[in-house]
Amino acid sequence: MIGCEHHHTLEIRNLTVRKGGVEILSGVDADIRCGEVTALVGPNGAGKTTLLLAILGQVPYTGEIRFCRAAEHGQGAPRIGYVPQHLPLDPNAPITVLDFFALSAQRRPVFLGASRKTRESARESLERAGVGHLLRRPLGRLSGGELQRVLFALALRDAPDILLLDEPVSGVDVAGEELFCDFLSQVQRNSRFSLLLVSHDLSVVTRHADRVICLNRRLVCRGATTEVLTPENLAAMYGADAHLFRHAHADGHGHLHDEGGK
């Protein structure tokens, strides 16, 4: 078994994504290291979600994305977990959290009920995320924080090599955000997988990410969080409004938006 530490889980080389003749991402190089939290930051429209989609193989790209599977997960294609940015929830939808787990876990159609195996693994995953009581609740009526824990629990159920989180703390209140982040680092310490996190929230990034990839249609910079998040780099990424981010740094809780990025 090869030790995980000095291993890249994911190597991205010269990644370019075009859509309708426009280059959304050009020549991006990046590494996601095993067992680390990597944050992907950049203004709106910087191509962060596109990069995730490229990793997921859901958009055509040129360049290379190489996966290296964690040794303890055995052979075969790497498992990628994905928590989307917005799950547009229909409060009325007759789908419980258990149904949601069953949809991707069992062959038996959900209208014939969840299998025992599904029920047990769902309960176990939810309890690990501290939300075991949500099992029978309608998915559409969860609060933002509850939903994110459910999504996270579902992503972890499949023991991913890489977990992609798109804006995991958007639309969640501060308390929910703290809980979520604590939970994140807890799980991160216990299980061996890498995490790629898209976030606008500098405080989340500085507190939880080991490394940062700054993106604005191309790679602006990458490296250890403390070295990378300098005013100069932020200015390069978000444009002239760098004072916004010094302010963001000072109170430690700023949200980055694209005011200067257009």
């Binding site: 990628i80 994905y82 959900v110």
Partner: peptide
């Protein structure tokens, strides 16, 4: 199952 999953979120269903 796949139809319902697709109805929840297309990108997620793809994964």
């Amino acid at each position: 199952n796949r139809i319902l999953l697709l109805g929840i979120h297309e990108g997620f269903a793809r994964t």
